[in-house]
Design a protein around this nucleic acid. Structure first.
Length: 515
RNA sequence: GGCCCGUUGGUCAAGGGGUUAAGACGCAUCCCUUUCACGGAUGAAUCACGAGUUCGAUUCUCGUACGGGCUACCA
């Protein structure tokens, strides 16, 4: 498992990182970025990327949420090396299936006096919070100042504790935070971080149902799964002293993974939430997510028409850059250039406009074949079925500069597959006259199958216009409106060339009846 | 309230004692294009504040302010 570091020759632990979501709903932007950074780091160090499902809260079980996580990872192409689905040497990878493992560690802490048993009921805890609440202390914690006033193995006699346990009284195990110790560790992004243990509360480690809380489960599983580096959101920083202490008590600080607390992704006001998305009209989840209970749909980047390449690129740059002016990175380039030390410590506000720019760049950059299938689904929504693959890709090639999001292709490409039924007459009619009608009638006659090529079409058309005493500009826009229906789209003669002679003539004739 | 983290244009950000303080998004103007885009050019716009250290602070230190996170038998 160990190997020598390429750079310094020292024996180093194999890099093993993990993404540990709780399957309670959609996968958030920030979650995907955490996956990304984990993945990039693992690949870069020839390490393993593990997916561990943190489903210790049975009350928050959500049908389909776990599958949704796999689907998202699959879509963005960040697939784990070990997971509940794939398995691995360190399974099971679902914490609910690891339930029997945790108790012994909690018991060990109690035996060593580093944790204690607490019998307080939810009602008692609630009363404590009310009773101890003051203006100075609006949210009292279960800490060293109150634990002596509660019902736990610290205040009850050993006999009483024994009796309660034998009676099967519901109880939890809490860590006993030491008094006035400085707990410090080095964060890969923030450097030295320190906390005074007196200010941290006695967090529950093992719940009354026998399940561990996050605090116990992360350290036990990170140890058992030989995690070398632990990346998570900044919101975990305040509870990190508990985790550090647990590492010290249980496995030794020398075994502790290196921590990196990632900056938060901010919305218009504070931590980005799905509410922000709904409010401001941009997606927050990777893919569409429908809450099975409320049927509430939260939009995803995928369905909004984002390319996974763009999504990942944009996420990578939200909090990291390589110090150069480069902004467009493929996944492979990111693996090569990413460095956790260059991740910012400050939160980054998500900007949907910039996200769209990334997508546009990737649409232009990627071969159209890589997203043709996705575009088809949007066309299908407009009732258009694609049969000629080659022609379809030619169309995409012609309009891709005009598409920022995938659904834009539908707008930009429909007229290649369906003749317009409505025309922007306002753009044409005011300047229309008999001479133009005659001109287009003559054009229909003059169009020869052999001339069906963009450049020939263009030079002929302009020549005929001049001969008819018309400025090319006077008939170019009408020609476009005939073929397209509106004032948009690629070069007119490219359109005509792709449409073919018959269809072009048909559209001219149809329009002539209309104007 | 307490604790923790942070602060370079509207947003993402480079830079890290001496610079005209990069670049990108967005915005504006112009060019290209007899459409819409793409592309090109130009422009407006930034070191939160106050002390200290220093010959010199955007850069280092300390305060203040502001922003954010956490403060559950949730993760």
């Amino acid at each position: 498992m160990n190997k020598a570091c390429y750079f310094c020759g020292m024996q180093t632990k194999k890099v093993r990182v993990r993404f540990a979501p709780s399957p309670t709903g959609g996968l958030h932007l920030g979650g995907v970025r955490t996956v990304l950074y984990n993945y990039l780091f693992a690949r870069q160090h020839q390490g393993d990327f593990i997916l561990r499902i943190e489903d210790t809260d049975q009350t928050r079980f959500v049908e389909g949420a776990e599958q949704y996580i796999y689907d998202c990872l699959n879509w963005v192409g960040l697939t784990p090396d070990e997971s509940p689905l794939k398995g691995g040497k360190f399974g099971p990878y679902r914490q609910s299936e690891r339930k029997p493992i945790y108790k012994q560690y909690a018991d060990q802490l109690v035996a060593n006096g580093q944790a204690y048993i607490a019998f307080d009921t939810p009602e008692e805890l609630e009363r404590m919070r009310v009773d101890f609440k003051t203006e100075q202390n609006p949210s009292p914690q279960y800490d060293r100042t109150v634990r002596n006033k509660m019902r736990n193995s610290l205040t009850l006699s050993p006999d009483e504790v024994k009796r309660l346990l034998e009676q099967g009284a519901r109880h939890v195990i809490r860590i006993k935070m030491p008094e006035n110790e400085t707990i410090r560790f080095t964060d890969m992004i923030r450097g030295e971080v320190e906390f005074n243990s007196s200010l941290v509360d006695d967090k529950v480690l093992l719940k009354a149902d026998g399940m561990p809380t996050y605090h116990l489960a992360v350290v036990v599983d990170d140890y058992l799964m030989e995690i070398s580096h632990a990346f998570r959101g900044e919101e975990w920083l305040p509870s990190s002293p508990v985790h550090v202490l647990l590492w010290e008590y249980l496995f030794g600080l020398d075994k502790m993974p290196q921590w990196a607390h990632l900056p938060l992704i901010l919305g218009p006001q504070g931590k980005l939430s799905k509410r922000d998305g709904a409010k401001y009209g941009f997606p927050v989840f990777a893919m569409n997510w429908t809450d099975p209970k409320t049927s509430e749909l939260t939009e995803g980047f995928r369905e909004r028409g984002f390319l996974p390449e763009a999504f990942i690129n944009m996420l990578a740059l939200l909090g990291w850059n390589d110090g150069t002016e480069q902004e467009l990175f493929s996944k492979e380039e990111l693996v090569e250039k990413f460095s956790i030390e260059r991740v910012h410590s400050g939160g980054a506000r998500f900007d949907f406009e910039k996200a769209k720019w990334f997508n546009h760049e990737w649409i232009k950059k990627l071969p159209v074949s890589s997203y043709a299938a996705a575009v088809k689904t949007y066309l299908l929504q407009k009732g258009i079925t694609i049969t000629d693959e080659t022609r379809f890709e030619k169309v995409l090639e012609l309009v891709k500069d005009r598409a920022t999001l995938l659904p834009d292709f539908a707008e930009q490409a429909v007229f290649f597959f369906r003749a317009p039924t409505a025309w922007d007459l306002d753009a044409v009619k005011p300047k229309w006259n008999e001479a133009k009608t005659q001109f287009f009638q003559s054009v229909i006659e003059k169009f020869k199958p052999a001339d069906w090529e963009t450049v020939i079409l263009e030079s002929n058309f302009k020549e005929w216009a001049s001969a008819a005493g018309l400025k090319p500009g006077e008939v170019l826009l009408p020609f476009r409106v005939m073929l397209v229906g509106g004032k948009f789209g690629p070069h007119v003669f490219d359109i005509a060339a792709l449409l073919g002679r018959e269809e072009t003539i048909k559209r001219i004739q149809r329009f002539l009846q209309e104007v």
